[in-house]
Write a protein that binds this DNA or RNA. Structure first.
Length: 419
RNA sequence: GUGGUCGUAGCUCAGCUGGUAGAGCACUCGGUUGUGGUCCGAGAUGUCGCGGGUUCGAGCCCCGUCGAUCACCCCA
C-alpha cells in the first residue's frame, strides 16, 4: 500500500478520461439549460436533520449509508446523499417559493453514500439533477423525463430503457397499502424480509430472490388503486411521451429508494452495465416541501448518475471520434534553451489574443519536442530558433498533412482568429 | 454490512509441482548537422499491495490487513 491513497470507494477522473467525464456532465447540464432550468449551487453538507426528515428515516440511505459527523460547534452534519432535500431547504430558506412558479433549477456535484463500493457504485459519486417546483401537471412531469432522455440521446446512448409508474396520491397509496400488507401477511417469509416489509411493503416487489418474485406475482398493484385524477394524469404523461417518441415501459413493480416519491416516478436503466445499472431516476414529491417547513408545493425532479452514464457511454462506444484530443491550436517549440524566453513571451501574447497554445523545449532532442507537439493534439506546430527570431518568419506546420507554410511571427494570431 | 474472486514494471498481463522476476504497449536515447505520427536499434523501470508466519529458501503455501472487482442488501 502506498503511504497515501484515496479513501475507499471514491471515483477519480484524470486525463485523458476526464475529458469524457466533462463532456458527459456538460451534455446533461446543457439539456437542462435549454429547457429553462437555472443553476443552483448548494453546500455538500447539511444539517443531519434535513435528510432524516426529507429522505425518510426508514430508508437505507438514511439509516445506514450517511456520512454523519459532529462539527466543532457540536452540530450534527451530514454529507449530502442526494440533492432534492437540499434544494427544498434552500428554496424555503430564501423564500423562492414566494416568487413566480414553477421554480426550475439544475445542479451538479458530488454526493456521498457509505456503501460497499462496486463498479458503478462509489462512496463519492457525481450527479446532475433538476427540480421543477410548484406545479403539479402531467406536462411538467413529461418535461422532466424528456430533459433526461434528450441528454442521453444527445450523448448517443441507445441501449437504455425508461421504466415509469405512478405512486398516485396519498389516498390511493393508503388503500393499496392496506391490501398489500394483508396480502404479505399470508406469505411465509423470513424475519429480515418481514422487517423490510414492515418499513415499506412495496420493497418486496423489488426483491431479487425468485421465490419472493413468484410469491409477489399475485400481490395487489398500486396502479390498480389510483384515483381517477391520478389515473388521468398518468395517462396524460404517457400520451406526451408517446407523441415525443420517447419509448417507455410501465413497470408497476418499480420501487424507488427514497420515501418522498408520489405520483409519476421513473427510472432510466442501461442495458450495458452490471448490477448497478440505474443511470438516473426521479419522480414527483407532493408532501416533501411542507414536511420541511415550507409551503405545500408539489415538485418533480431527477438525479442522473454521471459516473454510470460515462460507463454506459464507454460500453456503447459513443466516443470514437466525437471528441477532440485537445483544445490546443498551436504548439511552439524553442529550438534551444536560448529561445525559451522569446517563445515564452510569444506564447503569452498569443494567449492574450485568445489563441490556445502550448510550448515544448527542443534543447538537444527536437524529435522529442515534436513528439510532445504530436501528443498535445495541436493542429499546428512551429519551431523557433535563432533564424526565425532574426527573420521574423516561422514555418507553420499542419500536423495532419505535414505541410508547412511561412508566416510572419507578428501575424501568427491571424492564422487562428478566422476559425 | 454479508459472501466469492483478485492485487507482479506507468498500462495490460505471463511467471510450470515454492529456489530472490519477464513480455507487449508506453517511456528515454540513437538511426549524420533544426521537425512528430510508420520502421529499425539501444536503454531505464519493480521493497511481486502491506504486515506477520511456515520453510534452508516464497511472487507462488498459511493468517491478518488495505484496496479493487463480482454478487447480495440498496442505489446514481
Amino acid at each position: 500500500m502506498r503511504e497515501l491513497q484515496a479513501p475507499k470507494g471514491v471515483s477519480e477522473y484524470f486525463p485523458p478520461r476526464s475529458q469524457y467525464f466533462e463532456f458527459v456532465r456538460e451534455t446533461l447540464i446543457n439539456s437542462a439549460k435549454i429547457s429553462g432550468y437555472q443553476l443552483m449551487e448548494l453546500p455538500v453538507f447539511e444539517d443531519t436533520e434535513l435528510f432524516k426528515r426529507g429522505v425518510g428515516e426508514s430508508t437505507d440511505v438514511v439509516s445506514k449509508e450517511m456520512y454523519t459527523f459532529e462539527d466543532r460547534g457540536g452540530r450534527s452534519i451530514t454529507l449530502r446523499p442526494e440533492g432534492t432535500a437540499g434544494v427544498m431547504r434552500s428554496v424555503i430558506e430564501h423564500n423562492l417559493d414566494k416568487l413566480t412558479l414553477p421554480i426550475k433549477v439544475w445542479y451538479s456535484g458530488a454526493y456521498f453514500r457509505a456503501e460497499r463500493p462496486q463498479a458503478g457504485r462509489y462512496r463519492q459519486f457525481y450527479q446532475v439533477g433538476i427540480e421543477a417546483i410548484g406545479l403539479n401537471d402531467p406536462e411538467i412531469d413529461f418535461e422532466v423525463i424528456a430533459v433526461a432522455d434528450r441528454a442521453f440521446k444527445k450523448l448517443g446512448l441507445k441501449a437504455y430503457r425508461l421504466d415509469i409508474t405512478s405512486l398516485g396520491d396519498a389516498k390511493s397509496r393508503a388503500s393499496h397499502r392496506k391490501d398489500l400488507v394483508a396480502y404479505i401477511a399470508t406469505l411465509d417469509l423470513d424475519e429480515a424480509t418481514l422487517q423490510r416489509a414492515a418499513l415499506n411493503p412495496l420493497r418486496l416487489f423489488d426483491d431479487k430472490r425468485p421465490e419472493i418474485q413468484s410469491a409477489m406475482l399475485k400481490a395487489p398493484l398500486l396502479l390498480d388503486y389510483l384515483s381517477e385524477e391520478s389515473k388521468a394524469s398518468f395517462a396524460r404523461v404517457q400520451e406526451l411521451l408517446n407523441s415525443a417518441e420517447i419509448a417507455f415501459t410501465i413497470n408497476p413493480r418499480m420501487v424507488r429508494g427514497l420515501d418522498y416519491y408520489t405520483g409519476t416516478t421513473f427510472e432510466f436503466v442501461s442495458e450495458k452495465l452490471g448490477a448497478q445499472s440505474g443511470i438516473g431516476g426521479g419522480g414527483r414529491y407532493d408532501g416533501l416541501m411542507a414536511e420541511l417547513g415550507g409551503s405545500d408545493l408539489s415538485g418533480i425532479g431527477f438525479g442522473l448518475g454521471v459516473d454510470r452514464i460515462l460507463m454506459a457511454c464507454e460500453a456503447e462506444g459513443v466516443f470514437d471520434s466525437s471528441l477532440n484530443k485537445s483544445e490546443i491550436d498551436l504548439f511552439l517549440i524553442a529550438l534551444t534553451s536560448e529561445e525559451k524566453a522569446y517563445v515564452s513571451n510569444l506564447l503569452n501574447d498569443l494567449r492574450n489574443n485568445g489563441i490556445s497554445c502550448d510550448m515544448g523545449y527542443g534543447d538537444r532532442a527536437l524529435k522529442g519536442a515534436m513528439k510532445s507537439a504530436d501528443k498535445s493534439g495541436a493542429r499546428f506546430s512551429a519551431v523557433i530558433g535563432s533564424d526565425e527570431i532574426k527573420s521574423g518568419i516561422v514555418a507553420l506546420k499542419d500536423m495532419k498533412s505535414g505541410e508547412s507554410k511561412e508566416v510572419r511571427i507578428g501575424a501568427l494570431s491571424n492564422e487562428f482568429t478566422t476559425n
